[in-house]
């Protein structure tokens, strides 16, 4: 079976290489891909959309419809992880571990027992790791700056590399960093499961909703120039604002999907403890 697979792979690869003979030369400025549509985008992006970064205008305006569905793909990925992994009504584990902060003593509790109400005990995971002050403090200091940078990346997608996808991933990573450096419960206190699960469709709905708003204002779906009358700007800058709106939606959707997938996988769908 392995040999057959190898033969098929080699034949397919050879066929693809054979076909590549007829390709235009590498980086040929006269190839159809660089002469047919690309000049239009490069020359007119600023005129059409008032966005200097034509990657952004291509992604979120000329072919914004594809990008909306790419965002939907990300939402779907999060949802599929949830539906397949989440074990609802997950019970608390039979034994729980607490650490006495002042002495460092670990207390193990059987089911039903309770810890005396005191600030001195903190819950720890089954796979207990020693508390590391440097990691915890270091991450806590870094997270706000990471998030600030993420907002910059989202907002600055117009004129420099960046945008909703990249910014959203950085935002999600900041929360995941919190979960890794502290524990999953701390991260869940900041971003509860319900909040994540609702924000994720809301993010994509902001994108699709912007498009629908254009439709309701009388132009085609995702034709941002329709927003001019609402935003009180000229149709060209309305396109630029429309792109920002959908980028924010993408950012929210990507951030929450990252967190959603992380929560489900790291806790094996139980949401009680994990990395």
């Amino acid at each position: 079976m392995k040999i057959i697979g190898l033969i098929i792979t080699i034949i397919t690869g050879a066929f693809l290489v054979y076909a590549a003979v007829d390709f235009p030369a590498w980086a040929d400025p006269n190839s159809p891909a660089s002469t047919y549509l690309s000049p239009y985008f490069i020359e007119n992006s600023m005129k059409d959309t008032s966005v200097p970064n034509f990657v952004t205008s291509l992604l979120a305006d000329y072919r914004g419809f594809d990008t909306m569905f790419e965002t939907t793909v990300i939402f779907t990925a999060g949802l599929v992880c949830f539906i397949l992994l989440r074990i609802s009504g997950g019970k608390e584990p039979e034994t729980r571990h607490y650490r006495h902060v002042l002495t460092g003593v670990t207390v193990t509790l059987k089911e039903g027992r309770k810890i005396p109400a005191s600030e001195d005990f903190e819950r720890i995971d089954d796979l207990w790791t020693p508390p590391d002050l440097i990691i915890k403090t270091g991450c806590r200091l870094m997270i706000p700056f990471i998030q600030l940078f993420a907002l910059y990346v989202i907002a600055h997608g117009h004129s420099s590399p960046g945008g909703g996808f990249q910014g959203g991933v950085i935002l999600g990573a900041s929360i995941i960093l919190l979960a890794i450096s502290h524990d999953l419960r701390t991260a869940l206190e900041r971003m509860r499961e319900k909040v994540v699960a609702i924000l994720c469709p809301v993010g994509v709905a902001i994108y699709a909703g912007t498009g629908t708003l254009c439709l309701l204002l009388g132009l085609n779906f995702l034709d941002y120039s329709a927003l001019a009358s609402v935003l009180h700007v000229d149709p060209i800058s309305a396109r630029s604002h429309g792109i920002l709106m959908v980028e924010i939606g993408v950012g929210i959707a990507v951030m929450t999907t990252m967190i959603w997938i992380y929560n489900n996988i790291s806790s094996a769908g139980k949401y009680n403890q994990g990395l």
Partner: peptide
């Protein structure tokens, strides 16, 4: 607008259902 409504109405309703579930 029919061509786009065919796709957009189910898409938007997917988000609505997802939120309604909570």
């Amino acid at each position: 607008q029919y061509p786009v409504l065919i796709v957009i109405v189910p898409l938007l309703s997917a988000f609505a259902i997802s939120i309604a579930g909570w």
